[in-house]
Write a protein that binds this DNA or RNA. Sequence first.
DNA 1: ATGCGTTCTGTGAACGCTCCCAGACCCGTG
DNA 2: CACGGGTCTGGGAGCGTTCACAGAACGCAT
Lengths: 338, 338
Amino acid sequence: MESTRTRIRRATINDVASAAGLSRGTVSRVVNGERYVSEDAKLAVEEAILKVGYVRNSVARNLVRQQSGAIGLIIHEPHSLLFEDPNIGSILLGANAVLSAADYQLVTLIIDSARDSRRVADYLQGGLVDGAVIVSARESDPIALAVKNLGVPAAFVGHPPGIPDIPYVAIDNAAAAEAITSHLLGTGRTRVGMIACALDRDSGQDRLAGFKAAMGELFDPELVVEYPLYTYGFGLEGMQELLRRRPDLDGVFAASDAVAAGAMTALQETGRQVPGDVGIVGFDDSSWALRCRPQLSTVRQPADLLGERAAELVLAQIRGLPSPAEVLETSVMWRGSA
Amino acid sequence: MESTRTRIRRATINDVASAAGLSRGTVSRVVNGERYVSEDAKLAVEEAILKVGYVRNSVARNLVRQQSGAIGLIIHEPHSLLFEDPNIGSILLGANAVLSAADYQLVTLIIDSARDSRRVADYLQGGLVDGAVIVSARESDPIALAVKNLGVPAAFVGHPPGIPDIPYVAIDNAAAAEAITSHLLGTGRTRVGMIACALDRDSGQDRLAGFKAAMGELFDPELVVEYPLYTYGFGLEGMQELLRRRPDLDGVFAASDAVAAGAMTALQETGRQVPGDVGIVGFDDSSWALRCRPQLSTVRQPADLLGERAAELVLAQIRGLPSPAEVLETSVMWRGSA
DNA sequence: ATGCGTTCTGTGAACGCTCCCAGACCCGTG
DNA sequence: CACGGGTCTGGGAGCGTTCACAGAACGCAT
């Protein structure tokens, strides 16, 4: 981070004051729309502002007010997920909606390397934001620890294992996975596999646990394949592997819709009929689900609500209100794929 | 933006100084890793920092240094594009890579309402960032004007019409569209339509212009349908409309891969063979392209490079170096869909 | 006249840091 | 012994605001 110090000097509140023949205090009052300033003074200040081209220095303001009016949203995802995971966009937009309404600025920070991780932690601790929403933290995430140590108001989307006492909003992945798997079994399948992903996260772990629970007696460890990410590509690959292990498979639970879409392609490429030969269910109810032919049976997850509620939890903390963890409802969307 | 002023007082540099029995100056020197501090002093300060739990207040630091070490990346997209457009993620990651290497923090600001637009403009002007990368600006964007007025170092991704003299990095959409359309015509098609999108932007306009140029004599205005966004849904709809107008259509240029994917679905649902009956080409070379069956012939657009170069342009301005506009190369990826 | 409440204005004191200058100290050299 | 040069430390000034307080000016009732 270098710099050539050549930026032209910006007008300050003092420049405005002297141009208007008034004092700092009065200028500050009109800039902030406070009471107790005469009509004459107001006009003079507004004219002076235009004349000298003044715009408020937020840094100085934030320093004295001891708050920034900004909330960070931290995304810690591997490269590819930024494109593949539709939930992130929804979470982002949901959070932005409630913060915007409360006149907070949402600033999104992405972590793509260890270096980023440190810099972002500094950013959070440095007083540059009043709080943070953290998406997809992993176990022993330095960010989570930083937040915890400094007491920055924060909320997690998803329930990071190993970080107690921090407000979060999540869905019950295990229960939802169990529910959709049961639906799938309800269509009379008996040889059902799972393409599991992201087992380093609570969502991945819990979906697998839910699957096992639903399968009960029928569960066969050989019919579970594991991949690091929720992607179309791994869905394709995972399905091929499953078919290799068990060509007579008649059902599959994919850990996300993107994965399910990949699996469906793999199935159709081997000439199998969906849902005739193999039934397939996904997770997310993202735009993937409607795009598949046949359309995907899946778990509807309210991603935008997740973002909204997380933002609300952060605001609650800032305002000194209670901010209880929250588990949002999911529902099974039953469509043509199983 | 309210607040209950109850945050616990943070330790300051003075607290560290008195705990270590040294002065502010010395503490500052060790915190910033400067020379001329004795080993004893360094140890004492480090111990004191741990003891009082000090973390630097970046706001105060930024105020005196008159720089923030942060670069804003502004995304002004309608809701749905945040999920559908794979380019945005690549641009983001590209920009982050170069800024991270230069030890700048990338902060992403999204605009989703007029209110956001104003707040973001304030954020940019208020000294909270040292520069900005602006993605997908539209004509007469308030953000663009704000940047222009205050002289904040900035670079645009894409070439916003009506905003001269601002560095940008873009691709030649018209030339690329012309090239791929020519390829399509080269397979012997004569009744070729286009699903055009986002005509309020340079990319949308230019792709249409390129299409027209390639078609020459063959161009038929009835075979162009227009939609506001580059989405799968509009691709589906657009293809159905085109087929209604001209059931014997034998080729189509979709304004993006997502649009092409929708179009392909529509085509296949009417029982048409791709590329046998109808050839189809897209734009972006996103993950959509490989996901279609057959795979999509498309224009490869280096989205990550776009982000990298834009970030470099901003850094160049900060360093007082020249920052010429840049047009990046595209290439035609010829695959199975035409 | 005096007092009181309201509106309006100016100013000193922060906020927490960095920068710079002055001075102390130590060492080796002429 | 004086001197120059390097190393180390302390502290004043200043970054551009907001905030609290003091005081001026005014009208109105006592």
